[in-house]
Computed example of a mutant assay.
Amino acid sequence: MLESGKERILVFVPHADDEVLGCGGLIEKACRYNNTVKVVLASVGNSFFWHREQPVSVNTRKKEFYKALKYLGCTNWDIMFDDKESILDTLPKKEIITKIDRYLLEFKPTMVFIPYPSFNQDHQVLYEACMAGLRPVPDRNYKVIAMYEYPLIVWQHPKLTDVGELYLDISETVDKKVGALRKHKSQLREPRHLISPESVKEWAAKRGMEVGFAYAEKYYLLRATFI
């Protein structure tokens, strides 16, 4: 379906770099086939990253986010809150759901991708708010609603079991995915870390082996409708 050029794809991500970790291949492939893609970043802000022992400014995170998406061919993005990184759980959930509702109404997506629930509070809050925003409503028909994963999903309990599985072949675009991750310079980790460029490529190879591709991204299907 991504090759049709007719899809309107909306991706909600908790933090800058999650768009690449979870959907980098999908974003690049969808844009390359002239589909309309919008990525909404829920939270960004000034942070201190212990792995680098230095502060990272909100402007740096924004620039890295823009560069990564541009590298993937996506020029349509937005940010919900530019001062709430790691504290989305301090906001009234209604405030987040209202913003999600507005994006759904204005963008009118045919496919929506949301984060897999996580131990991280921002991921969990955004997941729950997206589920509320995507509640069944007349005249809102989405072809696909699915959750994307990222390598830190290995530290997850309880694991979701009552969901379908989708795999996207990213064999031709895995290097673009890794290249986009490298645009997030403040987030780069050592090679054996789960979200290092090297590990992200290994993860894609692992998912590819599960379905006979060289490289793949895995998605967890919540709903699919076809006319």
Rank of each mutant, 00 (worst) to 15 (best):
P55V: 13
R207Y: 13
K6V: 11
K185F: 04
K183W: 04
V144G: 00
A42Y: 03
K67V: 00
E217S: 07
A204I: 08
Y148W: 11
D139R: 15
W77K: 12
L181A: 06
N59S: 15
A216N: 05
Y66A: 07
L160T: 07
K99F: 07
G25C: 01
I87Q: 09
E64T: 02
I170P: 00
D18A: 11
D169P: 06
Y220K: 03
K201H: 01
Y33E: 10
L2Q: 08
L134P: 13
Y71D: 00
K70S: 14
H123F: 06
F12W: 07
S199P: 00
G5S: 11
Q54I: 04
I153P: 00
R192V: 03
A214M: 02
V20N: 05
K108F: 06
C23N: 03
E172W: 02
T225M: 14
I9Q: 03
D17W: 04
S118C: 04
I96V: 11
T60L: 09
D122N: 07
S196I: 09
L10V: 05
G25T: 06
L221I: 11
A68S: 04
E149A: 09
V40Q: 05
L26W: 02
I227T: 13
R8Q: 08
G212P: 08
L26M: 06
K143Q: 12
R135D: 13
K108V: 12
I153Y: 00
D122M: 09
E172F: 03
P14Q: 02
D169Y: 03
H157W: 12
A129D: 09
A132Q: 15
A129T: 10
D101C: 13
Y103K: 05
P115E: 03
V37R: 01
E128R: 15
F107K: 06
S196K: 08
L88P: 07
V56I: 14
D101M: 11
P136L: 05
W50I: 14
W50R: 15
C130H: 08
C31N: 10
T98S: 15
G208Y: 06
L168Y: 03
P191I: 04
A129I: 09
T161M: 14
G5L: 10
Y167C: 06
V39I: 08
L181G: 04
R182N: 08
W155I: 12
T90Q: 14
T98Y: 14
L2W: 05
E202K: 10
A224H: 15
I227E: 14
S171F: 01
L168E: 02
H123I: 00
L72R: 00
G45F: 10
H15G: 04
R102K: 13
W50A: 15
Y167V: 05
D139A: 12
V174E: 01
